[in-house]
Design a protein around this nucleic acid. Sequence first.
DNA 1: GAGTGGTCTAGACCACGGT
DNA 2: CCGTGGTCTAGACCACTCT
Lengths: 253, 253
Amino acid sequence: MGTTQLESVPEPKYWHLRTVLSEALDSEFSVGEILPNERDLAARFGVARATLRQALEQLELEGRLQRRRGVGTTVAPPRVGVAVGSRRHTWPGSAEDAWQPVDCERAAPPAAVAAALETGPGEAVHVVRRSRMSNGQRVATELLHIPDAAVPDLTAIDAPSGAARARAVLRELQRLELEGQDRAVELGSARADDAKDLDRLPGAPVLVVTTRFFAGGRTAALSVATYRADTCRLTFGDSPDVEIHHDPEQRAS
Amino acid sequence: MGTTQLESVPEPKYWHLRTVLSEALDSEFSVGEILPNERDLAARFGVARATLRQALEQLELEGRLQRRRGVGTTVAPPRVGVAVGSRRHTWPGSAEDAWQPVDCERAAPPAAVAAALETGPGEAVHVVRRSRMSNGQRVATELLHIPDAAVPDLTAIDAPSGAARARAVLRELQRLELEGQDRAVELGSARADDAKDLDRLPGAPVLVVTTRFFAGGRTAALSVATYRADTCRLTFGDSPDVEIHHDPEQRAS
DNA sequence: GAGTGGTCTAGACCACGGT
DNA sequence: CCGTGGTCTAGACCACTCT
């Protein structure tokens, strides 16, 4: 006997730091407050800056912190509840859709999308770009892929491009009877252009929501929506913005 | 004249590396194959090991790679489609629930959970722990919180703890009429014990699915499920395991 | 220009898995 | 035991924002 085992399970420094900082955020800081800069914090805790940054990255991933180059690190507000998919199946663009059309172009989708749409490889489809705001901040961008076969009357549309054409395409889509839809959520990292839209750096964690819309016995549209993972909590079902919790660590007991 | 601007938008090395490696994975490697070790790879690309690791971390986040200490880095299989929430509202444990009860104890939930359950702070509830397998691998762990008020007949149950008691509690729950449910998905990081369950390191990215079950005009149960973000794609709606795509970068065109 | 976070380096040592 | 990925250091420079 003798040595009362301290540190019998030595957790990594950055993980311990994360916990300490997390508790400090709960008790000593309020939303929007600016933290000391990384060099000061690292010195204060007696660790290298890289180690401190590992802890900050964790907290940012959990939506507790927000970091902006040239500005500083601030305490993030609780995640926004963003309603994804009502029970009722509706086409994009109908009723009070939270999305705003940005533009529309024709392009050949990547192989994976083409497969879901059952179009030939390299076959161009309509690609409607939309964005979604919440609390004055852009929280998601979407690419909506629609094969020609799904919207046959599109030749009559005059708007060559832009938001006007996007709206026209969506209008045509709504003439079809929606037979069902399908949804999947996974973790991804923001590509350069999505990152720019979302005011994040490339590689930022995002929640990718893929929705298939069925009509006429085929996939008539496929939506790939990219949500900021740091600021969004995706809600499904009846209540659009329920304040359940803001604790990615689930339980502390 | 003179300097034709190459690298006019110099992207970070690790991001470029990520792209290069990603393409190499597509064309030159097959699932399960072991990559060269980090020191070799770093040398091969002429970068520091830390920089190479940044690229590997990205790819792991996207579900393209799997890294295990003491073993090596392997090419990950496509993400598993995991069905979350059927259209029909059912209690946990009923019918062909994908979850397996592990044990059950009484504990005071964290404040956020207590608030959702409308229990007093510090008030103990039943906590059923369950786990979920897919393809022989544990993909999620769950804590199901049930306040006493929701299952009044529980005094008759003899099993003091363990999976038997967990099943008994679920059975009692199913006697109630389920009035509705509510679901949210957000990004989190695995706590130490969840990480262990999921065979990951603490801090590993997870998808946290919070489900509220309503009965008798109140929240009768609250489930907090933690899915491995690297290996899972959460599917909602009709088709449980649709192969939509495996490309977190969405489109390449 | 001053100050911030973001990238990158070249090393060291540790914890783990398989031999 | 060796080789692997995981952690950590102490520095440097870059890109950005604000004043």
